[in-house]
Design a protein around this nucleic acid. Structure first.
Length: 621
RNA sequence: GCCUCGGUAGCUCAGCCUGGUAGAGCAACGGCCUUGUAAGCCGUAGGUCGCGGGAUCGAAGCCCGCCCGAGGCUCCA
């Protein structure tokens, strides 16, 4: 809303003719007001009652200064190029009038929708002429864009159970959680939303101190800056997940990050997905940033020729980025971001039988992927979510999933379908604040093929709609890193040294020469290690050994070797092994074999920083 | 988004209540030390006290608004 506020000796105005259909009724008499503050007001798109109140409140504060208590609200479109619809504008203007009257201000209002003639005399004092811009509080503006799914979710009724590996389903309040403390925390988090956090999430100081990632104040909250070490870790996980999904049989593609809000299939889908979007304007279009890879892939497959012979048809994209405009109070560290990297893999299946089979393949794939990243079943809990109907018809199938998982699973059952899927599972990491965050997930989608007009040709030559499985095999990559850091912190709380998996450690081996004399020997060792695809660096700074050891330990470096006189003479190196918490005598060859055996099936990238510590900048602290 | 708390040197923080010359440790930089497995010593430099406004002779400090972060609420594919 824009207001031109004029402290006037008098104003005279006269309605001449109606400009729009919804113009208010009025007589065409000349009106005159004296000693009045005139508010020429333009109502803009997105303005609402709250804005009207805010505007009046601001004006009121001003009136008190001027010691005036008479206003004229004068609708005046020419102040803005982004006007609200007349019907909305009239509502807002009326809200201003009502609120001003309620505040005890003598309030007059010129009719809305008329072409008017006016004469005004403005007082000359410094405060007589002012302009104001009142913006809607963000909440209100967003409320207009909240999807139907979000609204539906508010009304959603869930029934909670624990599904045991043997297939028995027990109401959650009857389940004995002994030995399943993590599941208990997860269930509480999901159901009662109770949590007892006194501290800030430990991964946040860790991600900063380890120079992995940090907040970027120059962006929107939840958009993260990645330092070289973090970029390496993230990149390795990205490569790993992609390799596993390709191995499973998916075709990797790339699709746009932004889409037309008014595209018919998309607009409809957005309303079935419980998330908020970033919206941006470009020329006359309203675009939104994707929150998953579904759009691009569906639009692509819509144009694809395929039959039952090609199915299940598997399409994959690593979205860098997916955007979700989470509530600001929810965005935290690497747990919940507004821009994140998510592998998203869809499988188009002929029928429920094929979908179920594929679902099981992917379920196993996800367990494997997380394991590779460094998260075992002990680190996360599973939730299965489905409609009652689906469960009744597919009991054995759901039981078989629980059996594969091998641990009790939290079940959320809905009496009616609210979303576009009928069955969904997710793996959830429970962190040091007892909060849960979903990692891998898969869903059976029964709606979107129709919505996007995706069809395949069946054995009889007829067009049919496939079922679509949506899977993120690892969940957001940032969230995996969050889970690894939180897990490391848990280790530390138990008195163990915190570690990252060896294949993700930015430095795998650090060499510390006793003095310059031994630098050359270190260089040779480093060359050998590098030739074997091991990330090695050399701390040749003129600091004490103790200090350099300490810093290497604080960086969580898995292997540290001090090189001095003895190492020139002997093959046996004193390797400080972080995990074993001791110095192990071994040859370089033995060390290399040990490392290779641990990282063999994982991708490799070279050291992301200068090899020599003396050449290395400090990104944080 | 709401409520509460916080934002002071690159980092961690003191100073704020009770207004009057901006502090420490770590890091950086310069030097000494030449080191055998988690902090050696001395020195130098480093600050729009988050941003904007207000009251005051005078603001890091008091008042108001905004931005960012944290905890809680809410929400969570």
């Amino acid at each position: 809303m824009r207001i031109l506020q004029l402290h006037s000796n008098y104003i005279e105005y006269k309605p001449i003719q109606k400009e729009i259909a919804i113009a208010e009724e009025t007589d065409k008499e000349t009106k005159r007001l004296e000693e009045v503050v005139v508010l020429f007001t333009a109502v803009e798109e997105g303005d609402d009652e709250t804005v009207a109140h805010k505007a009046v409140d601001e004006v009121k504060a001003f009136l008190e200064k001027l010691k005036v208590n008479r206003i004229l609200i004068y609708p005046y479109a020419h102040l803005s190029s982004n006007l609200a619809k007349p019907s909305e504008a009239l509502k807002v203007v009326k809200a201003m009038e009502a609120h001003a009257k309620a505040q005890g201000i003598e309030t007059h209002r010129a009719p809305f929708g008329w072409n008017k003639q006016f004469t005004i005399s403005i007082k000359g004092h410094p405060l007589a002429e002012q302009s104001r811009i009142i913006l809607p509080t963000k909440a209100k503006k967003e409320a207009e864009k909240v999807s139907e799914a979000l609204k539906a979710e508010e009304k959603l009724v869930s029934y909670w159970y624990i599904l045991q590996p043997d297939g028995k389903m027990v109401p959650v309040e009857e389940f004995n959680f002994k030995g399943h403390e993590n599941l208990e925390k997860f269930a509480k988090y999901e159901i009662s939303k109770v949590r007892a956090s006194q501290q800030m999430p430990p991964h946040v100081p860790l991600m900063k101190r380890l120079e992995i990632a940090d907040y970027e104040a120059g962006s929107d909250p939840g958009n993260i800056r990645w330092y070289p070490k973090g970029r390496l870790i993230k990149s390795l996980i990205e490569q790993y997940v992609t390799a596993k999904v390709v191995e499973y049989g998916a075709m990797e593609v790339e699709t746009p990050v932004m889409y037309d809000f008014n595209h018919p299939s998309l607009a409809d889908y957005i309303n079935r997905f419980p998330a908020r979007q970033y919206v941006l304007k470009s020329e006359d279009r309203e675009l939104f940033l994707r929150f998953a890879a579904c759009f691009g892939q569906f639009l692509m497959v819509h144009d694809t020729q395929f039959s039952y012979r090609h199915m299940p048809l598997r399409v994959y994209e690593l979205t860098r980025y997916s955007f979700r405009r989470e509530k600001s109070g929810e965005v935290v560290g690497l747990r919940r971001l507004r821009a994140f990297t998510m592998p998203d893999c869809h499988a188009f299946c002929t029928d429920l039988e094929q979908a179920k089979k594929e679902f099981i393949t992917r379920f196993k794939l996800c367990i494997q992927v997380l394991e590779g990243i460094g998260l075992t079943k002990d680190d996360y809990e599973a939730a299965f979510r489905f409609t009652k109907d689906f469960y009744e018809e597919n009991k054995d199938f759901i039981k078989s999933l629980a059996e594969i998982f091998g641990k009790p699973v939290l079940v959320e059952m809905w009496s009616e379908p609210f979303f576009y899927f009928r069955l969904k599972w997710d793996f959830n990491f429970v962190d040091n604040q007892d909060k849960a965050a979903a990692l891998s997930t898969d869903q059976i989608d029964v709606e979107n093929a129709k919505r996007y007009e995706i069809t395949y040709i069946d054995e009889k030559g007829e067009r049919r709609y496939p079922l679509i499985l949506h899977c993120s095999p690892s969940g957001a990559v940032e969230r995996c890193i969050y889970a690894l850091l939180e897990k490391a912190y848990k280790q530390q709380q138990k008195g163990e040294p915190p570690t990252l998996p060896l294949w993700l450690s930015p430095t795998q081996v650090r060499l510390i020469p006793m003095s310059e004399k031994f630098l050359e020997h270190c260089e040779k060792m480093a060359e050998t290690l590098e030739a074997n695809q091991i990330r090695v660096d050399i701390d040749e700074r003129p600091l004490t050994i103790q200090k350099r050891i300490r810093e290497a330990e604080m960086e969580w470096i898995p292997y540290i070797i001090v090189v001095g006189e003895k190492e020139l003479e002997s093959e046996a190196l004193p390797v400080r092994d972080r995990k074993a918490r001791k110095i192990r005598k071994m040859t370089l060859k033995e060390l290399m074999d040990e490392i290779k055996s641990q990282v063999q099936d994982k991708p490799f990238r070279p050291l992301p920083l200068p090899k020599h510590l003396s050449k290395r900048p400090q990104f944080y602290g």
